[in-house]
């Protein structure tokens, strides 16, 4: 008798694969019978299984308001992701989850939101951004500062260039690290750009995700602009295996990132060992 084996994935189908950049692809995953394989909250993750290569955890980049599928934007970094980049539409894989706490939706209600993302770090933010835009009335102004190394490294182009800028009371600020032919937008690093634009901390929550070094400078910049650690939210990435707080791999002090995270306020992180 199969008991509640937490580690057992369900079979799902990769319905669509779109190439975002030279090393990032977005995968649409649906149940065999159609529909999203999981119910989840923005900011939560799922474990994707590609036997015989193995499993790896990814943040879900689609919004829970999208009921037909899950989306994952995945960068090539190891055996599982390399394999994922080789598969074609129609390929079947395993999914289990959702894992983690997700973004604190209650806390965000009624607030102005500032999203700061770098590179593939847009993936978890995008789930929340689309969720907020789908429930537009619940949130104040939405500002999105997003950057990547070059214009070719920007992901979700349709949304960042078209959908989001058109949404009501929503601003998108894009930047790239280096001058690039054909790019007439802003050039410069995300943290600096964020400070150049300037955001008042009153009634605003900042949500950031990106490479560790970017996060570090963003946190410093936010502090300079007067944001309190309680107003800043980030989401972490650590090596994970079980996703349910049992394999002991992803702890920061007494918290397990797979279960108690991956979303933390900066205030919470300041109280945890910096092992991320």
């Amino acid at each position: 008798m199969a008991q509640n084996n937490l580690l057992l994935p369900q079979v799902a189908v990769v319905e669509e694969i779109s190439t975002e950049t030279s090393d990032i692809k977005t995968f649409k995953v649906a149940s065999q019978g159609g529909g999203s394989p999981l119910e989840f909250l923005p900011g939560q993750c799922a474990m994707l299984s590609l036997p015989p290569v193995g499993e790896a955890i990814f943040s879900i980049t689609s919004s829970p308001t999208e009921k037909d599928y899950l989306e994952f934007s995945i960068k090539k970094t190891g055996s599982v992701t390399n394999f994922l980049h080789e598969i074609e539409e129609g390929y079947q894989l395993g999914v289990r989850g959702p894992y983690g706490n997700g973004f604190p939706l209650e806390m965000l209600k009624g607030k102005d939101l500032l999203f700061i993302g770098g590179g593939i770090g847009l993936a978890p933010l995008r789930s929340l951004i689309n969720y907020c835009l789908a429930n537009r009335g619940d949130y104040g102004q939405v500002d999105i500062v997003y950057g990547a190394r070059t214009p070719d490294d920007l992901v979700q182009r349709a949304e960042i260039f078209d959908n989001w800028p058109r949404a009501s009371n929503t601003n998108v600020y894009l930047t790239v690290d280096v001058e690039w032919e054909g790019w007439d937008g802003h050039v410069g690093f995300v943290p600096q750009y964020m400070e150049e634009i300037g955001f008042a901390p009153e009634n605003r929550i900042a949500v950031t995700c990106g490479p560790p070094i970017m996060i570090k400078f963003v946190l410093e910049g936010l502090e300079r602009m007067g944001f309190k650690p309680e107003q800043v939210i980030t989401t972490l990435e650590l090596k994970m295996k079980c996703g349910v707080g049992k394999c002991g791999r992803c702890n920061l002090g007494d918290r397990y990132v797979c279960k108690d995270g991956p979303v933390f306020t900066y205030a919470e992180l300041l109280n945890l060992p910096p092992e991320y």
């Binding site: 036997p51 015989p52 290569v53 499993e55 970094t77 090596k239 295996k241």
Partner: peptide, 30 residues
């Protein structure tokens, strides 16, 4: 614990096995 697959051709199994925080690769990311 860790989770790993074994296989011959395209058929195999998945197991969990003890792991240790004393090993260098315990928290090593891709």
């Amino acid at each position: 614990f860790d989770i790993q697959d074994y296989s011959k051709d395209q058929e195999g199994g998945r197991f969990r096995c003890w792991d240790s925080c004393m090993f260098a690769d315990f928290t090593l990311m891709g």
